[in-house]
Write a protein that binds this DNA or RNA. Structure first.
Length: 940
DNA sequence: AACCGCTCT
DNA sequence: TTGGGAGAGCGGTTA
């Protein structure tokens, strides 16, 4: 049986383009090659894995198709094709030609019509197994016994091959022809098929299961009720049209030329030139087996181990350890990987002798790279499956760890000396995770730490920092995906324990190897900026250790209290909903902004000029609703409902579910490499957004309690840290003075701006001044300010003008900040943490404005983060040094929270205050606020 | 998956 | 007259 692959170039190009959206591949000449690269990889993967006998690549034409002529609206409002894609298409065509693959184009038809037609023709000959390669779902309609849908691997998902059975199961239909009925109802945003409003996938599947087709559904519309019946009636024609649009043409006047589709030899010259132009170095090497210029292999740190001869297959570590008596027991696998064309040597270390020998050699190194394999994403819950080590590029070792905890501890003992060796630097990607896992097995990792993720965070704070992306960007290498081992996420995700040892070894060892290589590449970049080196070594790396400890400590949660609160909220919620329904005169989903908007503005006509969002929905945000509060009783009910619903679902019900089964406590996870400014973030759960503003929300803080009767919660927060930094950076005399004299800075500001003595400042004046103070930090405009303070635009402008007149240095500082960014391209904190703001020179005023505000905010917010990070490191050092029973348990941007043993309260409070205030002295002094209580609320 | 809305500093 | 202060994460709805 011959094997024919038909590729939908357009769909694959689009997919590749968006897959690389966050970190596009750019050549030295500025050409974005993401789409071409993605497509090429997909194409080569098929050639390698599937070994087709025939292959063709179909494109759309730029000319209008029969769909355009038949349906005017078709693709009318389809968004403009991204420029990078337009540019990519000719390259993809050239690539196909160089690879001797026919390019299938037919004027007036789209790629799917061509593929549909050829698939049917090929299938009719009886000699072909046809695979249509595309991520598009509408191809489902073409599937038959020997014509299959081939969905390429994507974002960790495996390749998926769908025959008629799979397609029908996927959509819950009885016949693949019904795919078009489904699309007719639910529409398809990508292909600009409108469908029927209000019908999504779920509903469409249900309706087609019952009625079989769009036509039959329309004929039986009387059996439907409510909104659904209305929609189907009103949009019946659109539904039929949509179905027709979704139908793929299978009679395109195109010949099925078997000879032309046969695979043939690439044109090496054309291909070589093209790959050079695209700067696809690895691909070039792999396809043509030659390099334009010998690429330099990264060199590892100088090793103390005996250096062995490197042969082509890099058997160095075998020789290196051959001096030991266990030589010969090393099970060496040397694999020449076709995908990456990389030579490596990964070894399985699974006997006591091998482990001891490995540990011996690890202890001789200046630096080692390691990684842990575990059973869970959450480090707190994870069981160790194995560890990998590497100290020379291309060489790595994998040590499996048994399921049984006792046995696991025995193995860890073999490596305790290594982890606790102060003289050996430890390199890892996201090292906090590994520290936590090992700590749970009683192993403390000592010595200098080097986290490649954090190094990259300092180099490129706004990019992504996961290892796979770093490897692709800096090593031009695609590592084995974890999904290849345990499958995609979801209910059927496999357990790493069940995976073949050889595969785990390759995967795990590779991670250590790659991480080591990344350090070799990233560190020189970091070293170019001495301030970043210092920030990395004295702040970020020590902090990673601190965070691991804080996370592992966790917080005690009063579950009984939350349970009661939940029941109370439930009652209140029902009441509020009932009352809102009565006031609306009908039941509706209050949580649906869409339905709510319709009730408020179309049924109750609360605001004739209600604003809509860009997606055509009424805006129903809190500020809008507050403006309507006096118009109708229902508005208050809706605001109440929203508050209750938020509290219940996001906090009261969610938090207890996240308690650790192991410790019974709540362990957040701090992310040290996500924010653009240097702040930390907190997830699973986010403990940095626990309510405090409203009385009812505040209650939730009562659930965060001290560990027992001998402990209390201590909260310590920096007072006005960002404003103090602003005062210090600008050198503004009166603001500095206000702080250094310990005045209420907002009151002092009001006094100046409104020209009244301090004691005559009213509450309202202070409120306005406070808003301006905050607004300034963010680079506010008059309009934005007027919204916040609820004053007229004129008054807001006056306020700002007065402000700048009274605090001229602040104005100067803001201008200087922007000027500096215009000149250098980045904003910088006091410790040299950078944020790149290329849009500061953009012609687009929205983009430029955003960059300008960031030029002001980033150094301030970032410096506050720097200071807090230093304080945390110092405070934790103090707690360790003094061997206190008290623990740091949370950090919320400018606040630290402790679970304090009562006997240590005064001592700790005093030192925490000192360490925070003097963490990084500025010309404006810092102040803290401290509070103590049985729970987090009382501590404020 | 995108959006809307809402929580925090 | 519409763009119109910063940084985050999460739950619910909708398509």
């Amino acid at each position: 049986m011959k094997k024919l692959f038909l590729l939908d170039a357009m769909a694959l190009i689009y997919r590749a383009h968006f897959a690389f959206a966050k970190t596009p591949r750019i050549t030295s000449t500025g050409l974005n090659t993401s789409a071409v690269f993605g497509f090429t990889n997909t194409l080569l993967e098929v050639l390698r894995k599937e070994n087709p006998s025939h292959l063709g690549v179909a494109f759309d034409t730029a000319k209008p198709t029969f769909r355009h002529t038949r349906f005017e609206a078709y693709k009318a409002q389809r968004q403009q094709q991204p420029e990078d894609i337009t540019i990519a298409i000719p390259y993809v065509k050239r690539l196909c030609e160089a690879l001797c693959i026919p390019v299938l184009i037919m004027e007036g038809y789209e790629a799917d019509d061509i593929i549909g037609t050829l698939a049917k023709k090929a299938s009719a000959t009886g000699g072909y197994e046809v695979y249509m390669m595309t991520p598009d779902k509408d191809y489902g309609q073409l599937v038959e016994e020997h014509v299959k849908l081939y969905k390429p691997a994507f974002m960790g998902k495996d390749v998926e091959i769908m025959g008629p059975k799979e397609v029908c199961e996927r959509w819950g239909i009885s016949n693949v022809d019904q795919v078009v009925d489904l699309l007719g109802l639910m529409g398809d945003a990508v292909d600009n098929i409108p469908g029927i409003p209000g019908i999504g996938e779920k509903t469409a599947v249900k309706l087609i299961a019952e009625y079989g087709s769009v036509e039959n559904l329309i004929a039986n519309v009387d059996q439907l009720k409510g909104k659904m019946a209305e929609n189907v009636r009103a949009f019946a024609e659109q539904g039929l049209l949509s179905k027709e649009l979704a139908l793929i043409e299978q009679n395109v006047p195109i010949e099925f030329d078997e000879k032309a589709l046969e695979l043939c030899e690439p044109n090496r010259e054309t291909l070589s030139a093209l790959l050079d132009e695209l700067e696809f170095r690895t691909l070039r090497k792999r396809l043509l087996g030659e390099e334009p210029a010998p690429a330099e292999t990264p060199k590892t740190a100088k090793s103390k181990a005996p250096t062995a001869q490197m042969d082509l297959f890099g058997a160095a570590p075998v020789a290196a350890i051959a001096t030991s008596e266990v030589a010969g027991q090393w099970e060496t696998t040397t694999v020449r990987r076709t995908v990456h064309d990389t030579v490596h040597d990964y070894q399985l270390i699974d006997t006591p002798e091998l482990r001891k020998s490995l540990a011996h050699y690890l202890n001789l190194q200046d630096a080692i790279c390691f990684d842990t394999e575990t059973t869970a994403l959450s480090a707190i819950e994870a069981d160790l499956i194995g560890m990998s080590f590497s100290y020379r590029v291309g060489e790595a070792f994998y040590v499996p760890v048994p399921d049984n905890r006792e046995a696991a501890l025995v193995i860890l003992e073999d490596f305790r000396s290594v982890f606790e060796n102060e003289a050996v630097e430890k390199i890892a990607q996201n090292i906090k995770y590994d520290l936590t896992v090992l700590a749970n097995y009683g192993v403390e990792v000592k010595g200098k730490l080097y986290d490649t993720m954090l190094a990259h965070y300092l180099i490129e704070p706004e990019k992504r920092h996961n290892m796979d992306i770093l490897a692709e960007t800096y090593l031009n290498y695609t590592p084995v995906a974890i999904e290849e081992l345990i499958g995609k996420k979801g209910k059927n995700q496999g357990n790493m324990r069940d995976v073949d040892m050889e595969k785990i070894k390759e995967y795990a060892a590779e991670d250590a190897d790659i991480t080591l290589q990344l350090k070799e590449v990233l560190n020189p970049v970091l070293q170019q900026n001495p301030k970043l080196v210092s920030l990395f070594e004295t702040v970020e790396m020590p902090l990673a250790r601190v965070l691991a400890e804080v996370e592992a400590e966790g917080v005690r949660l009063d579950v009984g209290f939350l349970k009661e609160l939940s029941q109370q909220l439930d009652v209140d919620l029902r009441d509020t909903q009932q009352r809102a329904w009565e006031l609306a005169g009908q039941e509706f989903n209050i949580a649906s902004p869409k339905q709510l908007g319709e009730i408020l503005f179309e049924k109750l006509h609360l605001d004739p000029k209600a604003k809509k969002t860009k997606t055509g929905q009424y805006m129903t945000g809190e500020d809008v609703l507050l403006g309507l509060e006096s118009k109708h009783e229902i508005v208050r009910k809706i605001l109440d409902f929203r508050e209750l619903q938020k509290l219940k679902s996001t906090y009261v019900d969610a938090l207890p579910a996240l308690l650790s089964p192991r410790t019974g406590r709540l362990h957040t996870s701090f992310n040290q490499a996500v924010t653009a400014t240097g702040r930390l973030s907190s997830t699973n759960p986010n403990l940095q957004n626990i309510p405090i503003r409203t009385p009812r929300g505040r209650e939730i803080r009562k659930a965060f309690i001290a560990r027992d009767e001998d402990h209390v919660i201590l909260s310590a927060d920096y007072s006005q840290i960002e404003l103090r930094i602003m005062a210090a950076f600008s050198g503004d005399a009166s603001m500095t003075e206000a702080f250094n004299q310990g005045l209420d800075v907002h009151r002092a500001t009001a006094s100046k701006v409104f020209h009244v003595p301090l004691e005559e400042v009213t509450a309202d004046m202070r409120r306005k001044a406070k808003t301006v103070n905050f607004g300034i930090i963010y680079g506010v405009s008059a309009f934005g300010l007027s919204q916040q303070v609820e004053v007229s635009r004129t008054e807001a402008k006056e306020l700002i003008d007065n402000y700048f007149r009274e605090f001229p240095a602040v104005k100067e500082y803001m201008d200087e900040s922007m000027a500096k960014v215009r000149e250098t391209g980045y904003a910088e904190t006091i410790l040299g943490r950078r944020r790149y703001l290329p849009n500061i020179n953009s012609g687009n005023q929205t983009d430029r404005g955003y960059a300008e505000r960031n030029a002001i905010n980033a150094p301030i917010q970032g410096t506050a983060a720097d200071i807090m990070k230093i304080a945390m490191v110092k405070v934790q050092d103090f707690i360790r040094r003094e061997k206190l029973k008290s623990r740091m348990i949370l950090t919320v941007h400018d606040e630290l929270v402790f679970d304090v043993h009562k006997s240590e309260l005064d001592y700790l409070r005093e030192h925490v205050n000192e360490l925070m205030v003097h963490a990084l002295p500025l010309s404006v002094k810092m102040e803290t606020g401290m509070g103590v209580g049985q729970n987090w609320l009382e501590a404020h």
